[in-house]
Write a protein that binds this DNA or RNA. Structure first.
Lengths: 175, 175
DNA sequence: GAAAATCATTAACCAAGGTTAAAATCTATG
DNA sequence: CATAGATTTTAACCTTGGTTAATGATTTTC
């Protein structure tokens, strides 16, 4: 069996409306989600009640709470639909246990984790080495889909600035 | 064969002196390194010539350039010893090809990548949601070994501020 | 152990972005 | 269409941290 077949066979199609949550920070959710269509936002709420956007998810992206699914803790972030979305949900344990006995599955999992790791390293680089303005310019170049589909508020909280700060950056970039 | 045996059998022991580089940004290096002892620094140099510290590596940590070893590009960062260090070097391709046929190896690799992913997510969270001062306080709590072994310059560039900025943060925290 | 180099602190000035609040737009929906 | 709610921009003021440069404090190295 290959990875795609495993997902097709054991996955459950989930259709969600704009505004619906897939899971919320603090609760438990041990599934992995494959985005078939739509747009989602993964976000943290800090103790002081401030929101920060971890990532936006588009078609073909994969998401799940590792701290809940793998470590057995609670989700460290929430996942909500910004547009009507179509996902395939599969328990992490199903994938994980197939890895134990099935090479193909294990190797697809390794592939997936390598790509995920590189994506996270890229974001680490952007926060460490680039200014908020540079991050905005880069997003403009690399991800116009996100730029045009997301409110300024969400975009700001993804870039690590406030909405007021982003408004100023945009003005500066316009000139 | 298990993962540890694979590393013992195919790995090469490498002893490096303080100041020695394991690999440098822009070159090719397709190995993975297991830190047996010592202290290392992984760092980026930007186009403008500024340094930023991606991570510090201690005993039992694992490091390698995914962009070089996995994607076949050049290393996006350099790796240098801050203290005399003892590493085991193994070609990524050796591990990767064993994954194709060996469950145990594949599953150890998955384990390793899951832990790496969670570590990167944690650092992403810290940059996204925490101030430089909070990051300093957290490092003080979580990683005293790093705090006491590393110069203010390197520490600052790890936290995402300048050495002058870190000096001010320390002063503020002292009060 | 003295000279050179590196590292840490301080100061003065500047730039980026946070905070709060108000105004201006835009979007839903009754 | 009109009102309520959300979104974006602007302004004023403040905090954090960058930059440059000078001064001490520590290490290296000869």
């Amino acid at each position: 069996m290959n990875f795609t077949e495993l997902i097709e066979t054991n996955g459950k199609i989930v259709n969600k409306k704009k505004g619906d949550h897939i899971f919320v920070q603090g609760s438990s959710n041990t599934s992995i989600y494959f985005i078939k269509s739509g747009l989602l936002k993964a976000y943290y709420i800090t103790e002081e009640g401030k929101e920060f956007v971890k990532s936006f998810l588009l078609t073909n992206d994969v998401i799940g709470s590792l701290s809940s699914a793998y470590k057995g803790e609670s989700c460290s972030f929430s996942l909500v639909c910004l547009e009507d979305s179509n996902l395939v949900e599969i328990p992490f344990s199903v994938i994980y246990s197939h890895c134990k006995t099935d090479h193909l599955i294990a190797n697809s999992m390794i592939e997936l984790l390598l790509n995920f790791s590189m994506k996270k390293e890229k974001r680490e680089f952007e926060f460490l080495c680039m200014s908020a303005e540079d991050r905005y310019r880069k997003l403009e170049m690399d991800s116009p889909r996100i730029l045009e589909s997301v409110t300024q508020n969400d975009l700001a909280r993804y870039l690590g600035v406030t909405p007021v700060g982003l408004s100023r950056i945009k003005k500066r970039v316009r000139l």
